[in-house]
């Protein structure tokens, strides 16, 4: 399958890439790992006039810890993130990075491309909610950080302005006694999850919940979150009953479409059980247990 013809550019710096995108205008698209864009072009669902290959910009490849936050360059690949020191420290990051697709896709696909495409089944947009991440967006003469929830506007719709690129993902370091887990369910490795759930929490004395973030992925046009449901758990023991009430309330807000990955009913059942598993794993990790894990396959 051949994409429609396009012109190809490979600027050497971030500054020249931003300038070029501004000059080329509407028909141009950035190309990062290509693991979402190339399949789209091959199916001719998009026919851009120009591709601006940002894939080699060394300025956007970092993964580092700065004081109380983690900064991940937009071009960090899923594979590099999965084996990074940061993924060791914040296990929910490793769950996500190591569970996406298969080794070949993880070797090329990037976190920046993943949030930008805003596919309703993408793992990073869902996961990043649990860590209250901010997305740094840079244009030829502007730079701003947007909360992940505000960045993802709708299915396949982000809030980038013309000629803006995602340059970095910023994640505050979780406090002491925190733990998280993210689990997706899919039919095979090289497929998006049919459903996913993430829980990141901090425990207080007596195993009460000090703080918690919950998310359901592939559960509607955008990740399903609810500040209200989270708040009801704060100060409470994270007992089975409280958690299943939270699961029920979140699933109520979800709207998973029936498609080749399963019926809407099946997905709701999966969301419920993935949520409970993620919550239990998050509690174990917050209590200091080392548990590896990522997505589950049939």
């Amino acid at each position: 399958m051949y994409p429609a013809p396009f012109r190809y550019h490979r600027p050497g710096t971030l500054g020249s890439a931003l300038k070029l995108l501004a000059e080329l205008g509407e028909g141009a698209r950035p190309l990062a790992g290509g693991q979402s864009l190339i399949p789209i072009l091959k199916m001719r669902m998009d026919e851009p006039s120009d591709l601006v290959d940002i894939g080699r910009l060394a300025e956007l490849m970092h993964i580092r810890q700065e004081k109380n936050r983690v900064c991940i360059g937009a071009l960090a690949t899923h594979a590099r993130i999965a084996v990074s020191a940061i993924a060791g420290e914040i296990p929910i990051i490793r769950d996500c990075a190591g569970g996406i697709a298969d080794p070949q896709v993880r070797a090329l696909g990037t976190i920046g491309g993943s949030v930008s495409i805003a596919d309703p089944s993408s793992d990073w947009p869902a996961l990043l909610h649990t860590l209250e991440a901010e997305i740094v967006c840079q244009g030829p003469s502007s730079k701003r950080a947007i909360k992940i929830n505000d960045f993802i506007k709708d299915s396949y719709t982000n809030s980038l302005a013309d000629a803006e690129l995602v340059t970095e993902i910023q994640i505050p370091m979780p406090p002491e006694n925190s733990g998280g887990a993210y689990i997706g369910f899919k039919k095979a490795a090289p497929a998006y999850p049919a459903a996913s759930a993430g829980v990141q929490l901090t425990l207080a004395d007596g195993n009460l919940c000090r703080d918690i973030r919950l998310v359901l992925g592939a559960a509607g046009p955008v990740p399903v979150t609810s500040r209200q449901v989270e708040q009801q758990l704060i100060g409470q023991p994270l007992a089975e009953k409280n958690l299943s009430q939270a699961a029920e309330a979140l699933v109520e807000l979800s709207d998973p479409p029936s498609d080749s990955r399963g019926s809407s009913e099946f997905k709701r059942a999966m969301l419920r059980s993935l949520f409970m598993r993620a919550a239990n794993r998050a509690m174990q990790r917050a209590g200091g247990e080392k548990i590896t894990g990522s997505h589950d396959y049939v």
Binding site: M1, Y8, R10, L31, G34, Q35, I38, P39, K42, D53, G55, A79, D102, P103, Q104, V105, A107, L108, P190, A191
Partner: peptide, 27 residues
């Protein structure tokens, strides 16, 4: 498959396995 799924087109690029149907030669 030509749809990024099957891995029959896998080659090594700078040591990493990649799907050569999901990568432009210019890259």
């Amino acid at each position: 498959c030509d749809t990024s799924f099957c891995g029959a087109c896998t080659v090594l690029m700078d040591g990493a396995a990649v799907k050569s149907c999901t990568l432009f030669a210019v890259q």
